[in-house]
């Protein structure tokens, strides 16, 4: 499966990475090469095999559904590029 320029543009957008038009052809080539490498997986007989969901068989621990931690507004905002009045600030989203 090879990736064309249109697909490369779509993948870049899905990944939320800005890619200039002139950078799309080499990107498409690079992604195609990696996908070609993955095609080897098609040789494997996977009939009846369960996909792995957990590498070590363990049941996730449960706990009561209650607040155990929190109240760190200042620390959470401490590294943000832009904050206002205790919130993260971003460019206008709603017209």
């Amino acid at each position: 499966m090879s990736i064309d320029i249109k697909t490369a543009r779509k993948v870049a957008h899905l990944a939320r990475i800005e890619v200039a038009e002139e950078a799309l052809p080499p990107l498409a080539d690079a992604l195609s090469n990696i996908l070609a490498f993955m095609e080897q997986l098609n040789e494997v007989d996977i009939e009846g095999v369960e996909p792995m969901s957990s590498v070590t068989p363990m049941a996730l621990k449960r706990r009561a559904d209650e607040v155990t931690d929190g109240g760190y507004q200042e620390q959470i905002l401490a590294n943000a590029p832009d904050t206002r009045e205790g919130f993260f600030a971003v460019p206008k989203v709603v017209e």
Binding site: V11, A12, L14, A15, M52
Partner: peptide, 27 residues
């Protein structure tokens, strides 16, 4: 490159062909 490959193999239509297949091979 890796983030984009990841987005591609998880995207609609390719998830089974790549991601699920890889997880089966992992088993």
């Amino acid at each position: 490159r890796r983030v984009m490959i990841g987005a591609y193999v998880l995207s609609a239509g390719f998830y089974d062909a790549y991601y699920i297949r890889a997880q089966k091979v992992r088993t």
